[in-house]
Deep mutational scan, measured.
Amino acid sequence: MDPFVVLVLCLSCLLLLSIWRQSSGRGKLPPGPTPLPVIGNILQIDIKDVSKSLTNLSKIYGPVFTLYFGLERMVVLHGYEVVKEALIDLGEEFSGRGHFPLAERANRGFGIVFSNGKRWKEIRRFSLMTLRNFGMGKRSIEDRVQEEARCLVEELRKTKASPCDPTFILGCAPCNVICSIIFQKRFDYKDQQFLNLMEKLNENIRIVSTPWIQICNNFPTIIDYFPGTHNKLLKNLAFMESDILEKVKEHQESMDINNPRDFIDCFLIKMEKEKQNQQSEFTIENLVITAADLLGAGTETTSTTLRYALLLLLKHPEVTAKVQEEIERVIGRNRSPCMQDRGHMPYTDAVVHEVQRYIDLIPTSLPHAVTCDVKFRNYLIPKGTTILTSLTSVLHDNKEFPNPEMFDPRHFLDEGGNFKKSNYFMPFSAGKRICVGEGLARMELFLFLTFILQNFNLKSLIDPKDLDTTPVVNGFASVPPFYQLCFIPV
């Protein structure tokens, strides 16, 4: 058959498939802009700032609406009420993970971030239990974070109060905490193996944040037939998995079943207990991918939040002064901060919360999916439909947070200066898919920041009023603009 005829037939089939998918069930789905064949609503979305586009569309179609990214149908949730109703009140029905062709290629359905069903539930339950087990290797997770915080302070001392970009050092600290939990080992910041790991993690975040990856996920045929950065992403992930597998083999040879040292040991012990169960989800494949998931999810998000926190503290020296006064009063100079201190430091706690609220790190979270046909607000959402959640619409709700575009710790303080919780605080998402490392991340943010401010004054290279804190939105995360500062020993 003539190649031209084959091409026309293929394009015609794709067009018909697109029209059929977009028209099927439209009477039951939430409203939304009319999609174009094949490309859907992509032309109506700013790929570099999806969150802003969703906010604009919500003003037209309401808090629940339908979009098509290519052939992929998505239902968008915008605003606290619908997000709570879906992710919390109907948590089980909305607990699936959205379709990610690239991740599915890399992870093969294993791990904790992109798995679904029984596998996801069992691996998540085990990971939560293990991360909360403060007795691994007779050292609590808090001990590990405190140790890394001391190392971080010593690295900052080496800058000798000269101007520096904190990106690298602030990236090393949370990565080392995860390494300590998974591998029972922290690395020197100049260790070549550690630097290679950091390089792969950072490069992957840069790649994932590009519009090209959005295109690959919406048109998965590209993955096999086109060159691009997605190939580098898959190569980096394969490198990390190979490295983790080597460490798993080392653990198998040296493990003491009665004295687990780290996450890998705990997983291997669980595998041993379930070795007679042919349906067990505790396999080497799941261990390797879960460890890679924890490394990827637990490094860049925390380091970016820390980097943004220091920029905001530079911009608002009056806030920094209040935090340091609270540190001096509650902790002093002669001991290290600990998590028990947080309950006695409402202002510092409010500042950490406000940093996370203000920066809105992951504006749309990772997409969910419905696990069955769901009736939601008089609409029928078919099983498997991807759910896109606007966390921006919750964290920047102007009824809950007056002047949401302003950095103001009073958003989390009552009139008496006591810490005030808010149900709208969802930087880790909400419901059954809430970030498994939430507790660890909150511990790291509090301890790293208090250790830094206990030991250093922060000095800006320019007038604080002239510092730009506008986030650089890159399609996946909101990151701070480049800046330098000086760490002046107190």
Rank of each mutant, 00 (worst) to 15 (best):
G96P: 06
L366P: 04
F100H: 12
Y68M: 08
L388Y: 08
L43C: 10
V288S: 06
E155T: 09
P382K: 06
R261D: 03
F134M: 15
G431A: 02
Q278T: 15
V82L: 07
S390E: 00
V319G: 01
V394C: 15
R157G: 10
S429Q: 02
L16M: 14
F226W: 13
T66L: 07
G417I: 06
E203I: 05
T55L: 10
P211Y: 09
I381A: 00
Y61S: 02
L361Q: 06
D397H: 04
L67W: 03
P63N: 12
F69R: 09
E246V: 13
I182C: 06
R139L: 14
T229C: 15
I213C: 11
F401V: 01
S303E: 04
D188Y: 07
R124S: 05
L287T: 04
C175R: 03
L237N: 03
S429E: 02
N418V: 09
G109A: 09
P166H: 02
L43S: 07
H251T: 01
G62V: 01
T364K: 06
Q356W: 14
A292V: 15
R144S: 09
L461Y: 12
F428W: 05
R105C: 05
L16H: 01
T348V: 08
R357T: 00
P260A: 06
G439S: 13
A106Q: 09
T469R: 04
A430I: 13
D414Q: 07
S12W: 14
L156R: 01
L16E: 00
C164I: 12
L388D: 00
M240V: 14
R433K: 04
H368C: 03
S429N: 02
G298A: 14
R442E: 15
R108S: 07
G98R: 13
V394E: 02
L71M: 14
M136C: 15
K232I: 11
R307C: 09
S140Q: 07
F69T: 07
C216N: 04
V436A: 12
E405H: 15
T386F: 05
Q214G: 09
H344N: 15
S127D: 01
E300A: 12
S429I: 02
A149H: 01
F407G: 00
A350S: 06
I88P: 03
G298E: 02
